[in-house]
Amino acid sequence: MPRRDSGSWNTMISGYIQNGLLNKAQELFDSFQGKNVRTWTILLSGYARHGRAHEAKAVFESMPERNVVSWNAMITAYAQNGLLRSARDVFDQMPERNTVSWNSMITGYCHCGMMGEARELFDQMEERNIASWMVMVSGYVEIGECCDAWMVFLMMLRSSVRPDQAILVTALLAVMRFNKLELIESLRVMALKTGYESNVVVGTAFLNAYIANGSLEYGVKLFERMPERNEYSWSTMIAAFSQGGRLDDAIALYERDTGKGVGTQTAMVTAYAQNGRIHEARHIFHEITNPTVVTWNAMVTGYAQNGMLEEAKDIFYKTLYQMLLHGQP
């Protein structure tokens, strides 16, 4: 058999880890006599990614030498398990740090809602990348501090950092809380200038923002301009028409969708039911091949809202049966 070099061993260990076979990875690691710092770091990172902080610590403490990737992996292992004090100890002991080191520690704080500690570290960073800004903006949004999220986003723009799709959508979530159309519009102009508005995820996020703001006509115009639409785009627009008392527009839009998915069909079931047209709702419901729990609930609610309580009860018990059948809680 040809002699295997360290690259082959490292590849095999990585393969086991990627497939969740950590015990196999450990066995192979233990049998390899030519371990280098990359070998150790691969195993350490594997334990970190799978949330096994205790094993990651054992590997880290046994390493004959470490590099910045090893230190970062240990921070991540602790942070992902909520062991922020231990993560911070590792961070403080690092002989050298890179942007990933700072981002990993800040991410740990943000995930635990410790935005004060996260902001303190963030403000100390000499060099930030888009991930640094993203973790702070999303961290503030997650705890409902949307003013702070928006201020960090503006600070990023003043630093001449070009926003990417993810941070644009996250900033949009922040400004939606303000219920100010002009802020949504300012972000849409930014998306247009950066070329992201044509992205279906970004476009659908703006569509949802306009509708949540009560600006249905802005939403309609955006929907018609979208070069690509997904199931959520169609269902969002159908629901908006229905809730705005424009059932005929919802029906016309539903008929235009040539690739109707269960989400779009469910939106139309709800639209018909909300407007008292339960027979049409039932017709679409029975056309759905694999209804979700949301679909079943829409039909139950539709029957109940239209005074058909026996039918609602019948569908309710069928829903429970389907959930048990498919192992859903």
Rank of each mutant, 00 (worst) to 15 (best):
P163C: 09
N23P: 01
T258G: 12
F153R: 05
F122S: 02
I251A: 10
G302H: 00
A174F: 04
R128D: 03
K221M: 15
V100I: 10
A212T: 10
N199E: 13
W133A: 12
K180N: 14
C112V: 09
T107R: 01
V220Q: 08
V220K: 14
L187V: 04
Q80M: 13
L320T: 10
I251Q: 05
E217A: 11
F91T: 01
I106C: 09
Y254R: 05
R162K: 10
L192T: 15
K35E: 07
W9Y: 14
I143R: 13
G116R: 05
Y78I: 02
S86G: 03
K260A: 04
K221E: 15
L181P: 02
Q305K: 03
Q328R: 15
G113C: 08
H286I: 06
S186M: 12
N230E: 04
N72Y: 04
H326I: 11
A58H: 04
R177S: 14
E217Q: 15
I167V: 15
V269E: 01
S159W: 13
N98P: 00
C146W: 14
A58E: 09
S132T: 00
Q33H: 05
N23L: 10
G263D: 02
F223T: 03
M12A: 09
N208A: 08
N179W: 00
K57M: 08
T258A: 13
R162G: 08
I238K: 04
N10A: 07
G139F: 07
A174T: 09
S160C: 11
F60N: 00
R3E: 14
L207K: 07
Y303H: 02
S6C: 12
G302Y: 01
N10F: 03
S14N: 07
Q328A: 11
W296T: 00
M308Q: 15
A271G: 04
L43W: 02
R38C: 03
G261S: 02
R66N: 00
L187Y: 01
R49E: 14
G20A: 06
R188L: 08
R277C: 02
Y303P: 00
S160F: 13
I42A: 04
E55N: 12
Y303E: 01
K24D: 05
Y140R: 01
V135M: 12
L154Q: 13
M237Q: 02
M94R: 06
S159F: 07
F60K: 02
M115I: 12
G82S: 08
Y196C: 05
Q93A: 15
R66Y: 04
A250N: 07
D30S: 04
G15T: 11
M114C: 12
W71H: 01
L325Y: 12
A77M: 06
L157E: 14
D249A: 11
N98E: 09
N208T: 05
N306H: 06
Y321Q: 12
A79Y: 06
T39L: 07
R38E: 12
M74L: 08
K313N: 11
Y78V: 04
M176R: 15
M125K: 12
K24Y: 14
T292M: 06
G20R: 05
Q26I: 01
T264I: 12
V69A: 09
R66F: 02
R66H: 01
M94G: 01
V200R: 04
M136H: 05
